[in-house]
Design a binder for these strands. Structure first.
Length: 120
DNA sequence: CATCGAACCAACC
DNA sequence: GGTTGGTTCGATG
């Protein structure tokens, strides 16, 4: 099953692009009704959370890249406020997916244990 | 719970 | 070289 490109010590310019692919894979393997935080992906890939955010924003495949399934570490809805109606829409989509909301944030149990799934 | 400041890393100017 | 992000965490009130 070899999958994902982990164990990167140093990343060059090309490495970043590879990271982008890995990030997309991770996002695509997130089950419906679950979400992950930028920090989780960042930790899984060993990069800074900001980098992940940039990947989502500059993503070229919004179809296979459910960026709306990515939320803040606290479960708060972030992003999606630049080009869309706002986090309100995002929340609606997540609710439709089956994600449980705790007031203004996503319930902790709705988080997908990405690190655990990767064996970290 | 809201705000401020600092850290991280790559891209952009 | 310095600033900016779809962030995060810690401290403060």
């Amino acid at each position: 099953m070899g999958l994902l490109v982990l164990e990167n010590d140093k990343l060059g310019r090309a490495g970043v692009q590879q990271l982008r692919e890995a990030a997309y894979q991770l996002l695509s393997l997130i089950p419906p009704g679950k979400v992950v935080s930028y920090g989780d992906i960042a930790k899984a890939l060993g990069v800074s959370p900001r980098l992940i955010g940039r990947f989502m924003r500059e993503n070229e495949n919004p179809i296979i890249i459910p960026c709306h399934r990515v939320v803040g570490s606290d479960g708060r809805l972030v992003g999606y406020s630049l080009g869309s109606g706002g986090v309100g829409l995002k929340r609606k989509i997540l609710e439709l997916e089956g994600v449980k909301f705790c007031g203004k944030k996503v319930c902790r149990e709705s988080f997908y244990d990405l690190l655990g799934a990767l064996g970290l």
